[in-house]
Nucleic acid binder design. Structure first.
Lengths: 221, 221
DNA sequence: ATTTATTGTTAATAAATTGTTAAGAGTTCA
DNA sequence: TGAACTCTTAACAATTTATTAACAATAAAT
């Protein structure tokens, strides 16, 4: 699976070291040298996982984390802190800021890799999801693959479907859908989602997108 | 059975006294001198039982308890407060924070031991502790799982069942149900809950939701 | 044993939510 | 420019869910 990981650390060595390892493990890696750039980059590439150094100039990890958590379109992004060995994370109170986990920097490579793998797996798995699903979302080509056939979708429909498929079975509320597909500042009518859902059903098959009345929609392979 | 018990208390004497007794009773004992360390230790060793002093520097028992309860991987852990003699625990409102019981510190040794034994027993063998109710509420999927089967429920029914199942055996008064499922400003007729209960019984089996006449309803696995 | 308060049941009705269609505004691209 | 596509909306239909009324059944109290 094509996971996107964003590394945020001010130490070039660490950035390089981890970037190297993660890239070789098959992840798409983005980097930023401080909190500000990190937030900006996160909004741009919408990574699956963000590894945040706790101590940084400009905007430290904690602030960056809180800032990222303020953006609803990044609600499914996993955030993990990078800490120096021995730091007691619970005292750093990073969970308060919305982090999901923390990883010790000087950990051995294979341990690091399996930790990251586990992290990505734990929080719903786009990886196996797309494998299991009869539907594959190809972000790079902006195309949906169904039974070998490729289906081109307009932007909104694609974004909506991608969201639903990203976590099969999980119900996405209408609000979550608005925030993710439209953004929290745009206001569109109540029927807009319905119409897009209808079009998707037309194109990918009627029985895969399920209505949960009063809540939202979910995708079931 | 090889039970792990975590003692959290700032008084070294008590720590030593209890640790000694518990160890000799065959338990594996871990200790921590304050709330912070206690939480960290709990996450590390995943004890079956945590004995928490109510009064402590840094992070008191109440806070620590609430913090521990936030970690899902410790959901099966039993938490008991240690109180000075004479303190009325119900007034300490520790149950609010998620505690399971309380134990008076200055109790005699053999009484203490049998209390702890009972505590561990009451909450089932650690092995079977993971065996949950015959019903699982899957909030993410907005689905109820029963014997492997998934049952979809409408909004109100789902909320009502989720409330009851959240604390099996506990009786929820009609008022509590109204407040939780409808909200304290909405007023609906007297039969409304009944009808929802009826529908739930229809769907999940007649004998799991029990009427406590004059009070309310409860769920029994 | 009878009364009383409470809960169960049913079906009808109201309310809420979603589905559908077609039309129009805005875009894109040849 | 204009043809094709995308997005949004209004208006209405269809469906699902929630609530109520009326009455039956039951448990608790006298």
């Amino acid at each position: 699976m094509d996971y996107r990981i964003l590394l945020v650390d001010d130490e070039a060595d660490i950035l390089e070291f981890m970037s190297y390892n993660l890239t070789h493990a098959g992840y798409t890696v983005y980097t930023a040298a401080n909190g500000h750039d990190g937030v900006a980059k996160a909004l741009e590439v919408k990574p699956h996982l963000i590894l945040l150094d706790v101590m940084m100039p400009q905007m430290d990890g904690m602030e960056a984390c809180a800032e990222i958590r303020r953006h609803k379109e990044l609600s499914t992004t996993i955030i993990a802190f990078l800490t120096a060995r021995g730091e007691d994370f619970s005292q750093i109170a990073g969970f308060e800021a919305g982090a999901d986990d923390y990883i010790t920097k000087t950990i051995r490579t294979n341990v690091l890799m399996s930790r990251i793998k586990a992290l990505l797996k734990r929080h719903g798995e786009p990886a196996s999801a797309t494998v299991e699903a009869s539907l594959t979302i190809d972000h790079e080509r902006h195309i949906v693959l169904k039974d070998g056939r490729s289906i081109a979708l307009p932007r909104k429909e694609f974004a909506l479907l991608a969201l639903l498929v990203s976590k099969p079975q999980r119900v996405f509320t209408r609000e979550e859908i608005y925030d993710s597909v439209w953004g929290n500042d745009v206001f569109v009518g109540d029927r807009t989602i319905d119409v897009h859902i209808r079009k998707l059903r037309e194109k990918i098959g009627n029985d895969q997108i399920i209505t949960v009345k009063g809540i939202g929609y979910k995708y079931e392979p």
